[in-house]
Amino acid sequence: MHEMSIVQGLLDIIRQEMGRHGVTRLHEVKVVHGRLTNVVPEALDLAWEVLSKDTEFEGARLVTEEIPLRLRCGACRAEFSPEHLSAVLAPCPSCGEELGHEVVAGREMYIAQIEAE
């Protein structure tokens, strides 16, 4: 349940950014997370509901977007996204290599934008 800590970080950032932009009412916040980050969107929703309740953010929508895992082959350097998300032992579609791939995308966890007035 590290989603609680994630939402706590989220609330702190939103407060700062709203102050900086002179807005007071939050409608929506968009969070982008990579496939490899272990974030469970349902758990994030629940944490958002619990932690935003009775705050100035109560009722605002949390929108999440997942970035698929993208790898660079350990042998031929071709980039690819494994077909099955759970299969980390993913053969490169170009050369068949299974080991030593680099993670190009999938570790992101950031707040992308807020909608507020």
Binding site: S5, I6, G9, L10, D12, I13, E17, H21, V23, V31, M109, Y110, I111, A112, Q113, I114, E115, A116, E117
Partner: peptide
């Protein structure tokens, strides 16, 4: 209005 932010959520811990 839409405000783009792009900040790492765990930046405080980092």
């Amino acid at each position: 209005m839409q405000i783009p932010i792009v900040r790492n959520i765990l930046e405080a811990n980092d």
